[in-house]
Design a protein around this nucleic acid. Structure first.
Lengths: 160, 160
DNA sequence: CAGTATCCCAAGCGATACTG
DNA sequence: CAGTATCGCTTGGGATACTG
């Protein structure tokens, strides 16, 4: 990746590895169910029992997870009413939840490639053009980037 | 996302939600430490004690996690030797591990945006141009895609 | 249907000590 | 430095039963 020397040199942490970002995101949503619940919501599954049946998650844990997702702000409840029935709750992604989509797609691509031999059970397509949708590393100006071209920089100045 | 009706209809799972892809990737690397270890390796940290100190992970768990990462094939060991010292092991990402980079970057961006108020402690830059590197949803032909434009399709034919 | 309430087990993890 | 070995706790989560 960033360097190709064979012997690693003495080092200090680039940045406090417990702070923010990856570790923080994992603290919030890195348990064994949250991302799968988010995936269900993205697929359009919104009802408690449907999610439970799809995932095979226990009811108590799903209750807990949904509450937490709402608390964190990645999902929200929304009342709905079937004709002749009482009002119930459904769940939807918020903008903050939708922003987790690149994470889900990236996981899916990795799984497709290395667990399903290149072709997964689900594809993502552009609604109008029908083209396959993928996740890519690009510069802000839109140029494709290879992992080997990436340099990590801490805001304090150091880099790798 | 995919639909905007207020009352969800009866449903069947789009695809077996336990199979492959997201769930499979999470089974392999979704525990509380693996991705953080991968991040360290990407940052260029390769030695046992360095990783341990950075992450604050316990030694026994790190031993276990590194072994598993090697077993899965996302990391590999590589002997190295400091002058006047005996041969030791270091760890590096394999191609399969590097392919997890979009997941890490996506998590980092989400964390930066929602946990650090928009600006995280680390930035990724293109080595030559210095431009910031991001992860994006695009079609195979390179057109940017909004989440709302994505349709999910199962290979069996159904879609959402 | 959409939860809540209990109960209990097992995995996951940290702390600590030891070794080549 | 790079691990391995033990131990014991904590908590995540499944099973089951109950409720408005």
């Amino acid at each position: 990746m960033s360097q190709s020397t064979s012997v690693p040199t003495a080092r200090r942490a680039l940045v406090d590895p417990k702070s923010c970002s990856i570790s923080g995101a994992l603290d919030a949503l890195g348990d064994s169910w949250s991302i799968l619940v988010l995936r269900e919501l993205f697929y359009g599954v919104r009802r408690f029992n449907d999610i439970q049946n799809d995932l095979g998650i226990s009811r108590s844990v799903l209750t807990d997870r949904l509450a937490r997702l709402v608390e964190i702000g990645v999902a929200r409840t929304e009342p709905y009413q079937e004709p002749g029935d009482r009002v119930r709750n459904q769940y939807r992604l918020t903008r903050k939840g939708v922003r987790m989509l690149p994470v889900m797609v990236a996981l899916m691509e990795w799984g497709d490639e290395y667990l399903c031999g290149g072709e997964g059970p689900v594809t993502l397509e552009h609604r109008e053009t029908g083209e396959t949708v993928r996740v890519e590393l690009r510069t802000v100006s839109g140029a494709p980037v290879e992992p080997s071209q990436i340099v990590t920089k801490a805001r304090n100045g150091r880099s790798r």
